[in-house]
Nucleic acid binder design. Structure first.
Length: 250
DNA sequence: TAACGATGCATAT
DNA sequence: TATGCCTCGTTAC
């Protein structure tokens, strides 16, 4: 489930629980050497799109990407044994967070942190994101809008479920190529609003009155009009669209 | 209980 | 293009 809204949720939760505290760090699985971090103070947990950065005062950052399978487990008793395969445990005296099956968990020096920031477009959940820059990057992308918003260099944090639902919400077919500044701006505003709802709810929310429902994502029929949902491959992922509510095939 | 696909993407081929 | 992540929910058997 880890699209950007859940990464931000993890960052917020772990910042609140662990930020500013001296931590016990361990790598039970053996694939990540956590010893340099044991006893260090965690300055800040930061989300950038689907990436997490753990900043320490006197040590390089830790970079984590969950990929599709990565998860965090929270233990309110840090004495609990980590389950097999735990890549990283960060613990205070009253809580522990275990990282399982991430696609990336590694030490990042300042240059790597800077390169990561450079590689990502604006993140609709970050207060420092520029709407103008987001519109510029989307408008400048040559291909279909459904490929653009999955490209993390264009916007950071959107995944396949949000692609489907956000494009539905603004009535835009994923194949449309020349979105223009006005529609790009409306799509950005929807992303910022709905990802915030999703972060707070802990799931994709595309209809606040029915948070467990989707409009087209992984549906047979459009939830609004009942027309069969079209599916095809776009940017190596399954795209979903209602031909009635999202006209204008690219 | 097993198979399968999935909300991601780095890495190998 | 294929595969690997100590995964998970749903579906099929």
């Amino acid at each position: 489930m880890p699209e950007g809204h859940l990464i931000h949720r993890h960052a917020d939760e772990q910042q609140a629980a662990l930020g500013g505290r001296a931590l016990r760090a361990s790598g039970p699985q053996g694939r990540f050497d956590a010893r340099p971090y044991d006893g260090r103070t965690l300055a800040r947990v930061e989300a950038l799109g689907k990436h997490l950065l753990y900043h320490f005062a006197d040590a390089p950052a830790i970079h984590v990407h969950l990929g599709m399978r990565g998860i965090f487990l929270r233990y309110d008793d840090p004495g609990e044994e980590p389950r097999r395969g735990t890549r990283l445990r960060l613990a205070a005296d009253d809580v522990a967070f275990d990282l399982i099956a991430p696609i990336q968990c590694e030490t990042y020096g300042p240059a790597e942190v800077a390169a990561l920031r450079d590689s990502l477009g604006p993140d609709p959940l970050r207060p420092d994101a520029s709407r103008d820059e987001a519109v510029r990057r989307l408008d400048a992308f040559g291909g279909p809008v459904g490929a653009a918003i999955l490209d993390q260099k264009v916007w950071a944090g959107i995944g396949n479920a949000w692609r489907a639902e956000l494009l539905f919400l603004v009535g835009l077919h994923p194949g449309v190529r020349d979105v223009g500044a006005e529609r790009a701006g409306r799509l950005w505003d929807a992303a910022a609003a709905y990802l915030a709802l999703g972060r707070d709810a802990g799931q994709v929310v595309s209809d606040p009155g029915h948070p467990d429902e989707r409009w087209v994502y992984r549906r047979e029929h459009c939830r609004r009009c009942g027309t069969p949902v079209l599916t095809w491959q776009l940017a190596s992922r399954t795209a979903y669209a209602c031909p009635v509510d999202q006209p204008g095939e690219g």
